[in-house]
Design a protein around this nucleic acid. Sequence first.
DNA 1: CTGATTTCGTTGATAGAGTCAACGATCTGG
DNA 2: CCAGATCGTTGACTCTATCAACGAAATCAG
Lengths: 157, 157
Amino acid sequence: MTNGPIAAGLPESVIMLVFMFKHRMVKTLAEAGADVSVMHVRTLKTIACLGPSTPAELAEALQRDKAQITRLVKPLIEQSYLVKSPHPTDKRSHVVALTRTGLELMERIAKAERIILERMTEGMLASEIEQFNALAVRMQRNLADRQHPACAPRDAC
Amino acid sequence: MTNGPIAAGLPESVIMLVFMFKHRMVKTLAEAGADVSVMHVRTLKTIACLGPSTPAELAEALQRDKAQITRLVKPLIEQSYLVKSPHPTDKRSHVVALTRTGLELMERIAKAERIILERMTEGMLASEIEQFNALAVRMQRNLADRQHPACAPRDAC
DNA sequence: CTGATTTCGTTGATAGAGTCAACGATCTGG
DNA sequence: CCAGATCGTTGACTCTATCAACGAAATCAG
């Protein structure tokens, strides 16, 4: 029934990895003078990936509470990285889309993130990186709530 | 100079994986009636690994601010999972150690965590799990601050 | 030894991240 | 049309994280 011995350090190593990655991102963003947090960056990336989106769509894609989406999007609109337009068919809702400024910010961020990723994967084969990513996705899907269709596997962008 | 194309989804997949793992841990801990957070669990595990430790040692092992260690340890002492004893040679410091109650809690937590890990690694080969873990450790070390000796690679327990 | 500096853990302040409950507005199905 | 579901927002709260300042103790220089 089991998969044999499970590496006890598995959670630790990944938690630490993510912590360090976020840590570097925060520092890099601060140095770049971008007044956004890691979650703001993930929000922007998700919108770049999905196209103009409703808060509900972002909440599903990021697996976050809709309340948090509201609070993430607000400063991004204030800083003109996003624009809010009324939803075409549902007056309760609206869609947020990247502005030109938002796209420019994302380009700067992508450049910074690329440097971090290159350092992170230093000395690793492309095939190793690819496999690591694939395994992360598999485990993520294994942990997803199977009862809840919204948590079904999503394709990368 | 580069490693070729870097999977753009790498940060996303790992961030999401860690988020989901923590999410399950929080739920599991609540169900088990353990009034501790994920960081509390990591603190206990670190002490179990290192043995009786000073806050400074925990801060280094967990890569967290010493202030946060103070705040993590406090409720664990209040709940009698840890005991604080004076440091043998340094009157400024002290050591925290697991109590019998703390060890019992850790056993319960280990059992719960094992279930999560089995689900997470469902359908994966032991070799895949092992390799994933090894790659995570390598990337974590690549990101560690090389100037700062405290961030040097640590052996697992 | 003595004084200057450093280090130890604690505390306060602040910010980010995440969750839950409630609400008004709107949509939808009967 | 009306009852119930859904949308985004807000309030309140917890956990996580960081930085600066502090008293106490250790250490180092002279």
